[in-house]
Every structure is written in structure tokens, then in C-alpha cells.
Design a protein around this nucleic acid. Structure first.
Length: 350
DNA sequence: AATCCGGGGTC
DNA sequence: GACCCAGGATT
């Protein structure tokens, strides 16, 4: 397919078919940045309520910068990839302190900020400042691979470089923002990962993948390794209307979020045996009233098998800095992994 | 260059 | 329940 034909047609298609989304009716770089961070690896339908919450609570970059990381994480709760939230906050603070509250207006300068990589820098530079730089996200990979029959792997450095070059050859000097959004929207609404709507697609007659029936084979990617299994034993100490919570500070999943005292094993074990083997926990075995409940939590690269053991009664004496009792009311205000939230709700503990 | 971070959707 | 999606940071 001719490149110019594609660019013209996809922009025409966008004018008619684009969704009406709140971040598309603003020129505020702050709101455009916020939407782009939220939409990383996240569908519009899932990210939209979070965007609205953030704009309402933090209408400006200054408001976000002066918030605590706790508040930002709590508002982010449930979205996943929590590094995005920590970098969001960090970035807001940098914009205020290093750029006097105004986002930098070039691709290269934007990339220096935390949480802003190639894709997000291109999105902000083009959408907020009309810089002629192509965005290359999952939608772009897919649309270009299928329509032009590009069989390079999208998750290799060479492949990524190749797609970036093609995307930048396609982009029109006039309205690069519209062109970028058009390709992504087309990928999100028509040229979808599974079951693309080729029958109604304007490019169907000249689409490489459609002609050769290779929609399911394109784009090509190196397949990921299988997830590793982890076994978490959570000990839920209840003292009246309080529970013992720990802030996760180690370099691992759920950094900065709160959960219970945790013992990790490499395989399934009896909960009481796990207790007996732990120097600190074993003294609670004899007077513990144990209520056990198992959960499985599937992440991209690991599978968490969690067993929750409730220990009732005023059992604990030694509270430490990152392990202490929180009232039921306070717990609702803390950022927690979904697994913990689900457990607390199931047992009506909050 | 390889690996780590999560949600939800699809079949 | 297995598989898919995929931007940025870290190592």
C-alpha cells in the first residue's frame, strides 16, 4: 500500500470514527501527560475513571507535586504497574522544581523526565506541541505490521528501530498530532490484537495481512518466558479492631504498598509448619486461632499462591518501624495490593 | 540484551 | 484456565 494513501485515509477515518475522550479536548500538557502515563499498557475503558479522579483531585502539576506519594499511590490503587504512579509523582515534582511548572516542549527534553520514554515523549511532543515525531506503541506496531506486511520482531531493538523509522516516514508535517492519534485509534478500534474487523476496514482490499490471511501472525514477536511460582504465607494479626500491617520496602513487587507479615516459601507447605519454622512466629502457634484461606494471583511473570492465616487475640508485643497495628478505618486509606484488598473484603475485615 | 512490573480481555 | 497485551526502568 502506498504510504501517502495510508496517511491520508487513516486521518480521514479518524475524523469520523474517533472516540470523544476528555484528554482530546484539552491543550494542557499536564493533562495530556497524565492521560499518556495512565494509558501505558492500559485500555481506555479501564484508565478513564482514573484520569477523571486524578484531574479532579490534582487539577495542576503543582497540586500533584505537593501531594504525598501515599496519596498518589492510593488514587492509583487497582491500576497496576505502580512504578508508573511513583514516577508520575516524581515527574510532577521535577517539572515544578526544574522547569518552573511548565512541561518541556521537545521530544528530547521530555525523555529526560522519569516515567517518560520514547513513546510518551513522542505523544506529548506531538499532541501538546505539534512536534513532528511519530508515536510507536502497540497499536502502531500492529497496524503497520499488518497493512505493510512488516515481519520484523516488534520486541527486539532492531525491530523497534525499523518500525520507528517507518512510522516517522509516514507522519505528515501538517497535524502530526492528528496522524499519531489516528493510527493508534485505528489500532484500538478496528485493527485489534484478536478478531480485527477486516470486513468493515477501509484498508481491507490492499492490506497485506488481510490478503494473505496473516492477521493472527502479525505483528511478529519473540515469546516471553513462563511465569515463576511463588508461595506467600500471610499472617494476619488481629487485635480488637486493628490489624498488623507492613509497608513493603524491599525491592520486589508492590513496592510502597501495604500488606501483612509475610513468609515466602518456594513450594506449598502446611501453614502451622511455616509458623513453627519461623523464629518470631512460632511463639504464637499454641494460642493462635488459625483461619486459613488460599488465593491465587496471576501476574505477567509470576504466579502468587497466597495463604492467609488469621491469628486472633492480643498476641503481639513487638511492633517495629514498618510493621505495626493499624485501625480498620486507617487501613481503608492505605495503598494495598489487590490481593490484600480482596482478602479483607472477603472476610469483611474493613 | 534480558528481565521485571499488573491489570483486564479473549477464547 | 491458558494465553494475550507491551512502555519504561533496571540490571
Amino acid at each position: 500500500m502506498d504510504k501517502r494513501y495510508f496517511s491520508d485515509k487513516v486521518v480521514e477515518w479518524y475524523a469520523v470514527n474517533k472516540r470523544d475522550l476528555p484528554w482530546r479536548s484539552t491543550r494542557d500538557p499536564y493533562k495530556i501527560w497524565l492521560s499518556e502515563i495512565i494509558l501505558q499498557q492500559t485500555r481506555v475503558i479501564q484508565g478513564l475513571p482514573y484520569y477523571l479522579k486524578f484531574v479532579e483531585k490534582f487539577p495542576t502539576v503543582q497540586a500533584l507535586a505537593s501531594a504525598s506519594e501515599q496519596d498518589v499511590l492510593r488514587l492509583w490503587q487497582g491500576l497496576g504497574y505502580y512504578t508508573r504512579a511513583r514516577n508520575l509523582h516524581k515527574c510532577a515534582k521535577e517539572v515544578v522544581t526544574k522547569y518552573k511548572g511548565a512541561f518541556p516542549d521537545t521530544f528530547e527534553e521530555l525523555k529526560k523526565l522519569p516515567g517518560i520514554g520514547d513513546y510518551t515523549a513522542a505523544a506529548i511532543a506531538s499532541i501538546a506541541y505539534q512536534e513532528k515525531v511519530a508515536v510507536v506503541d502497540g497499536n502502531v506496531f500492529r497496524v503497520l505490521a499488518r497493512i505493510f506486511g512488516i515481519e520484523k520482531e516488534i520486541n527486539s531493538p532492531e525491530g523497534k528501530k525499523h518500525f520507528t523509522q517507518i512510522a516517522n516516514e509516514l507522519i505528515t508535517p501538517k497535524n502530526p498530532d492528528i496522524h499519531n492519534q489516528a493510527v493508534m485509534e485505528f489500532g484500538a478500534l478496528y485493527c485489534t490484537p484478536v478478531s480485527p474487523v477486516c470486513e468493515q476496514c477501509i484498508f481491507q482490499p490492499s492490506c497485506f495481512a488481510s490478503q494473505k490471511n496473516l492477521q493472527a501472525q502479525l505483528p511478529v514477536k519473540i515469546k516471553a518466558k513462563t511465569a515463576r511460582a511463588r508461595y506467600f504465607y500471610y499472617f494476619v494479626f488481629q487485635k480488637g479492631k486493628s490489624m498488623l500491617l507492613k509497608k513493603r520496602e524491599e525491592k520486589d513487587i508492590w513496592h510502597g504498598l501495604y500488606d501483612f507479615h509475610l513468609v515466602e516459601k518456594t513450594r506449598t507447605q502446611n501453614a502451622l509448619k511455616v509458623m513453627a519454622e519461623d523464629a518470631w512466629l512460632k511463639k504464637f502457634v499454641k494460642n493462635a486461632q488459625v483461619v486459613s484461606k488460599k488465593y491465587k494471583h496471576v501476574l505477567s511473570h509470576q504466579i502468587i499462591h497466597a495463604t492467609f492465616i488469621i491469628i486472633k487475640g492480643d498476641a503481639l508485643a513487638g511492633e517495629s518501624e514498618n510493621l505495626k497495628y493499624y485501625s480498620t478505618k486507617k487501613i481503608t486509606e492505605l495503598p494495598k495490593p489487590v490481593l490484600i484488598s480482596r482478602f479483607l473484603e472477603d472476610h469483611q475485615l474493613i
